[in-house]
Design a protein around this nucleic acid. Structure first.
Lengths: 211, 211
DNA sequence: GCAAAAATACTGACTGGTCAGTCATGTTCT
DNA sequence: AGAACATGACTGACCAGTCAGTATTTTTGC
């Protein structure tokens, strides 16, 4: 309660010249967190993988937890922004949009690090309620809202039958998420073919919803 | 490479008189593993919750890992057995079976500890490849095989259209799994209504598949 | 230009707390 | 008595986070 004057710089950490380092560190962290989970990942291994020392991590992140949250913030929200912008720009029939969504977003989740991050959030949400809260507000809330608007548009023009659009949106997106999670945990395997599953789901979903 | 003779008893552990203890311990473990994950759960907390001392756990389980695997074995496979027996006993139209499945299995996952266990497996599969292998072989392999047979039966009697039954089975089950996982991690929340989602999905799926 | 000084970037080695697993010593049944 | 069941107290390994010090880059003074 006394040395406040010492804090001369308004940006205490994280803002440094070299802005390649945090990216390197985050890249290393995603992979290790995915494979071992948050708790079982040693920060020293993240450091090794990123080619820096453990102490360096603490120049850019306040704690292990902070590193984790940074990862979510940096990777999840931009992806959602992009996907929503796509939706707003689209003007064709709703069914075409769903096809595009399923193949773009579905494959992204199943085959890139985005699926790993989703799995990570799912795995750790209970342990970090603020994270769950943040995620809930930023991702499913906005994503489902957006998607159900698209479906509503389909209903309005007579392309789709009347239905509970929120439930429809959730039902549409679930298998895409599930494939992304599966491929980053138990799978990949020769039991589930994510692309075939997504393709079937998408077409069958549209068929079921069509008037 | 020498002390093999020390293992005099063929059943080294786990087989003891009091068979209430292991159940108590497993019950406590599910809950804590779900909320904190495997690594972050302290065995002492499991012991406290089960009303025993930590050392007692080691009377019934060889290690923390063994406790975890026991939990999967004890809870997952019986559930699958039951669900497969149900399928074999069912003789009505395939669509009715799917409805039953969606509401029984879907709700079970979303509202019981079964969903927690699914989430747990998903979370830890990468860290325990044997677990993933075991799970893969026991659950999706058998479950999807069984479900795609049901769909095939539906096709054979002209109830459903021709399609890739494996993909259809995976697409049908995905939202049920996803709701179960969601409710045990980020959710429950007022953004996703698992029951409404499952109901919609089930009806829309059948509508899409019907001739 | 260019060297000294200052600011920034980084690290090896350490520490304090935590926790899985052990063991010597009860306690409670038959 | 002795077999089965249970535990408190302990230990050794492990790891997040710290810190004193080194290296590198940038700025300043001339």
């Amino acid at each position: 309660m006394d040395l406040k004057l010492v804090e001369t710089s308004p940006e205490p950490k994280t803002i440094k010249r070299n802005n390649e380092r945090p990216k390197q560190i985050l890249r290393a962290a995603v992979e290790l967190f995915r494979d071992r989970g948050f708790e079982a990942t040693r920060l020293e291994d993240v450091a090794d993988k990123a080619g820096v020392s453990k102490a360096t991590i603490y120049l850019y992140f306040e704690s292990k937890e902070d590193l984790f949250f940074a990862l979510i913030r940096e990777k999840v929200v931009p992806m959602l922004e992009q996907t929503i912008a796509q939706a707003d720009a689209f003007s064709g029939p709703a069914s075409e949009f769903l096809r595009m969504k399923a193949h773009g977003f579905g494959r992204l989740l199943a085959h890139s690090e985005q699926g790993a991050i989703l799995k990570l959030v799912i795995s750790e949400a209970r342990r970090f309620p603020e994270l769950a809260e943040y995620y809930r507000r930023e991702v499913p809330a906005r994503g489902l809202e957006n998607l159900s608007q698209v479906i509503q548009r389909g209903i309005d023009v007579g392309e789709f039958r009347e239905c509970d659009t929120k439930a429809a949106a959730a039902a549409f997106i679930s298998p895409l998420l599930m494939m992304g999670i599966w491929m980053n945990s138990v799978g990949p395997d020769d039991i589930i073919d994510p692309d075939a599953t997504i393709t079937f789901h998408c077409e069958n979903f549209i068929r079921g919803l069509s008037t």
